[in-house]
């Protein structure tokens, strides 16, 4: 379970960054995330939809304890991300589009490394690793260095790393970006399986077909603000446009008009 309550995140900009923001920009801070609240439940997939720069990654990084909220509070499985970061991380898996693997290690070593960091005991780790390697077809290259792997192979190892400690909550930050259809399919399967196993799943995307395929709950985030948050069923039944894309653009435009 994830509960995000009135969370904001402001970044202080360096002078150089202020210049890069253009002549219209005033002040020294940007609100990457502005007072958002939502709630993700076990056994459901929560989709965070928004264009690039909307604040999706910042939000997910705050849930994963990499960043601290400037205000508000996030609870993951009942633990506060700021005061009980290690407890949160113990229960959380985090996967991004970039695989982020150590090239000079083998899948075996890499998974052992993350298993140990998750304080798994040796027998439990070996068993879980064997299961995952079988499921993902990693065994045949388990003892070769990751550096020479194809993106698809890396993606499999990356998935194994994310779920080796059987996390209750899985966070996917644009997990299919940069992947081909086959590699993307394995991610989609992982998300679905996580849901079937009763895990809490949150994933961010800007790809409408994925939204359609996976969402149980949907939140739309735009310029740091949450402009829609309901079940996907509700969203579909309330659509005023023919396609998801058009509906998304309509909602975003409506929000811009209100704010101008």
């Amino acid at each position: 379970m994830i509960r995000v309550s009135n969370v904001s995140k402001t970044f202080t900009l360096s002078r150089k960054q202020q210049k890069e923001m253009g002549a219209d920009f005033q002040g020294k801070t940007v609100h990457a995330v502005d007072d958002i609240s939502f709630h993700c439940q076990p056994g459901r997939i929560f989709t965070l939809l928004g264009p690039n720069g909307a604040g999706k990654t910042t939000t997910l990084r705050m849930i994963a304890t990499i960043l601290k909220p400037s205000s508000g509070e996030i609870l993951v499985s009942g633990y506060n991300t700021v005061s009980s970061g290690a407890e949160v991380r113990r229960r959380l898996g985090f996967l991004t589009g970039g695989t982020g693997l150590y090239d000079r290690l083998t899948p075996n070593e890499l998974i052992d490394y993350f298993g140990k960091l998750n304080s798994m005991d040796a027998r439990e780790l070996a068993k879980r690793k064997d299961e995952l390697f079988t499921l993902l077809g990693i065994h045949e290259f388990a003892n070769r260095r990751i550096g020479r792997f194809s993106t698809g192979m890396k993606q499999k190892v990356s998935i194994a790393r994310t779920v080796i400690h059987d996390p209750e909550v899985v966070v996917f930050d644009e997990p299919t970006s940069g992947l081909d259809v086959i590699a993307a399919k394995s991610i989609i399967d992982l998300i679905r399986n996580s849901k079937l196993q009763g895990k809490t799943v949150i994933f961010s995307t800007h790809i409408m077909s994925e939204v359609n395929m996976l969402s149980d709950d949907l939140a739309i985030i735009h310029k740091g603000k949450m402009i829609y948050n309901n079940t996907f069923e509700q969203f579909k039944s309330g659509m005023q446009e023919a396609t998801l894309e058009d509906e998304f653009i309509r909602i975003a435009a409506a929000h811009d008009t209100i704010n101008v």
Binding site: T65, G85, R89, F94, G100, F114
Partner: peptide, 9 residues
């Protein structure tokens, strides 16, 4: 990033 989301402090 992957290391920062592991339970190590």
């Amino acid at each position: 990033e992957t290391l920062l989301v592991a339970p190590a402090t």
